[in-house]
Nucleic acid binder design. Sequence first.
RNA 1: CGAGGUGUAGCGCAGUUUGGUAGCGCGCUUGGUUCGGGACCAAGAGGUCGUGGGUUCAAGUCCCGUCACCUCGACCA
Length: 476
Amino acid sequence: MAKDNQFVNQIADIETDFPRWYTDVVVKTKLVDYGPVKGTMVIRPYGYAIWENIQKELDARIKATGHQNAYFPLLIPYSYMTREAEHVEGFAPEVAVVTVGGGETLAEPLVIRPTSETIFGEMYSKWLQSYRDLPILINQWANVMRWEKTTRPFLRTSEFLWQEGHTAHATEEEAMEETMKMLGVYKEFAETCLAIPVFTGRKTEKEKFAGAVATFGMEAMMHDGKSLQAGTSHYLGQNFAKAFDIQFLDKDGTHKYAYTTSWGVSTRLIGALIMAHGDQRGLVLPPVVAPVQAILIPIAAKKEGVLEAVADLKAKLLASGIRADSDTTDNSPGWKFNEWEMKGVPLRIELGPRDIEAGKMVLVRRDTHEKVEAPLENAAETVQKLLADIQSNLLKMARRRKEERVVSAENMDELLKGVEGGNFVKAGWCGCRECEDKIKEQTAATARVLVEDECAETCVCCGKKAKHVVLFARAY
RNA sequence: CGAGGUGUAGCGCAGUUUGGUAGCGCGCUUGGUUCGGGACCAAGAGGUCGUGGGUUCAAGUCCCGUCACCUCGACCA
């Protein structure tokens, strides 16, 4: 028991000190380390492997919906930023600007992209001639930089990795369809791969992307009941088309502005993963994106045949596509159990002399801590099945939490009580900015998304007739 | 940008009140014994005390400046 406490003390308490728990976990599990420049992070191999798995799964979905990958430049002429009024207003305060190159002051300053609508817009206006050229469906995987005031690894860093899709369409309907389609892709991806159920919906004017006509977001509930915006999809209308002259000659012989969209998810998803599934022992990674799906721990490794059996089993698992690894260091088994649990590996396999003699292995699930024995024969199938079960169980548990922690509020007291209890709160809203601001001021909760197909009588704040039902929550 | 906090060995910290040869735990290296929930023994390596100046016979410690990072707020994927 004493040793148990010693272990627990290595990470802050998840219930009472969640922020500290988060930073403890990301650093101790070697997902990330702080960079020398404020707000920057080094994504270490273990963390980057998660990102690669996210990329692999999401990229396949982006391509399956007809998009192609490309790469646009990091540096954007400052003047591009100023062409769309709302866009520059939103992003100017947080761009990093390059003013010197090769030792000389530049004629025009360059911004390090905070997002790429402007340079995509500029290029699309060059490339687009005819309605036959539409739609243009391009995605890029890139880094972007935003000079954030306060930062936390994965959740908010000055530089982060993401994918940004930028599309151009002939009609409003098509562009809107694209916007919703990609929001749907994100939702399916989050649930299937990350085991994170999400709320999706339209954002309020205040929370909208700078320069968009409408922004749709997906919000995920974290362990502490706060919300994390895990992805967004924007319908840009003709705002950027007009600012960048993205025109085409239509069938009817007239020039028309295109309708554009943009959508993105970032390395913040890794933060979502950590905060949605983690527990007191550390990370809990869904098998689909876990860098190591099964960790093999030899017991009494120096006894004859143990290491050979471990290597043998590992090879078998690898051969059937399971991301298996073995820990053959000199640390004690107990040390390894705790270490790999903290690192969130979905499945641990113990193999010792007694098991080998009996032709079996011991399997321990990270999600339930359930310990089972299984024959070494057909080990790969057993492991595959367990991994699939862990994946679906994580989603099930997250879904249950998500459903249990949505409450309704009729007035400000109920709204405050709701969010203080770590809930998402549904409430009526009159639609005015004053009420939205007042709610934030009094409850620290913001409008996450507008809820469709639900009605409310009155605004939770002013009591006037409600226009929308809004999902309120405190957010990261 | 506002409010707090912290900079001493790879990591976590003590030492600063009251100035007097740089310490502890973990980790690391070597050898040995161990191994089914964070093992143990022995011997080692490792620090211009964030940085610049000042006071002093003497500064990790006192004074002035400065930089960085962390946390919390206002802004954001």
